[in-house]
């Protein structure tokens, strides 16, 4: 314990001290600022190592280590950019991005609603729902399954994003075309996962249902769908990332004058890099929240699975 206190007690305050020093002298200080930032990073890394070697079983250390690394990178980024006076168009400092985010909240919110809620979420629900129902429907025909699974696997590996210009041409510039791109992107990963999940039961389990004289419907709802849930959630998680990518990239091919993809491409054109970074931060938060809430639902639904029992 003594060694632990020694290593953390020295490195953590050292990191804070050098980070504060670096931030306060940063503007145009040249290599002095960079040296301070590097010192802060070295001390911060020592603190992470201290956490990892002495407290690796504690919950707060598992949370603290990645947060500390994030802080470390932010400090290095902020101080270096300001100390070396890196041009704004190449890399704006994090503080400028935070200021931009707080001053343009209405724009960011409107873009988020247009792209995420209208485009990505609608397409996600439609695509995943259609894929799930298709998987249940073809489940009764082994012939279709044998044919559709390889084709689905093949299509899932293709650059589907390339259909975006075609779908934008068909469905117009508004959110309908974005939702269509998302439907096409999420359909096959979801289908392949659900079909794989539905064939996950063992012969023993199916025989048991058979001895109970269970009908097809009863077997489906009481045994096979619950057993398929880990796979279904895997498909839903993969699709959640694809949905956001699809909705944003589809806007590069044409969109009304709002939306995250539209804002990114026009702000890049105007060299307003702080706005681009603000949109990326929003995308990151939305993406992680989406994924995180799926993970929480998964934990509740598939509590029986070995990976959740831990």
């Amino acid at each position: 314990m003594n060694a632990a206190v020694k290593s953390l007690g020295l490195s953590l305050p050292g990191f804070v001290l050098f980070a504060a020093l670096g931030l306060s002298v940063a503007d145009g200080s040249g290599w002095i600022g960079v040296a301070l930032a590097v010192a802060a990073v070295v001390l911060g890394w020592l603190a992470i190592r201290g956490l990892a070697t002495h407290f690796d079983t504690q919950g707060w250390a598992r949370l603290g280590a990645p947060i500390l690394l994030g802080l470390l990178i932010l400090v290095l980024w902020e101080v270096t950019v300001r100390a070396l006076a890196v041009p704004f168009v190449i890399l704006p400092p994090p503080s400028a991005i935070a200021v931009k985010m707080s001053t343009s909240l209405p724009i960011l919110w409107a873009d988020m609603v247009q792209t995420v809620v209208k485009g990505a979420l609608t397409g996600y629900v439609m695509g995943c729902g259609a894929a799930f129902l298709t998987a249940v429907a073809i489940d009764r025909s082994p012939f279709l399954q044998r044919g559709l699974l390889p084709v689905g696997n093949f299509v899932a590996a293709l650059p589907i994003i390339g259909t975006a210009p075609i779908l934008v041409m068909w469905f117009g510039f508004d959110w309908q075309s974005k939702a269509a791109v998302v439907v096409v992107m999420v359909f096959f990963p979801m289908l392949v996962n659900t079909v794989a999940g539905l064939s996950e039961t063992t012969a023993m389990q199916r025989d048991l249902m058979h001895t109970y004289a269970a009908s097809y419907r009863q077997t489906l709802f009481k045994l096979r769908l619950p057993a398929a849930m880990p796979f279904v959630f895997n498909g839903l998680k993969i699709s959640s990332t694809l949905a956001l990518i699809g909705a944003i990239v589809a806007e590069f091919f044409g969109s009304p004058t709002l939306g995250m993809g539209f804002r990114i491409s026009t702000s890049v054109g105007q060299l307003a890099l702080d706005m681009v970074w603000a949109e990326i931060v929003v995308a990151a938060i939305v993406g992680s929240a989406f994924y995180g809430s799926l993970a929480i639902i998964e934990k509740g639904v598939t509590f029986w699975h070995p990976s959740q029992r831990g």
């Binding site: 990332t241 990518i245 491409s265 990326i280 995308a283 992680s288 995180g292």
Partner: peptide
């Protein structure tokens, strides 16, 4: 979980 493709431009 982040749509990193948005960084491309």
């Amino acid at each position: 979980t982040i749509p990193i493709l948005a960084l491309a431009p």
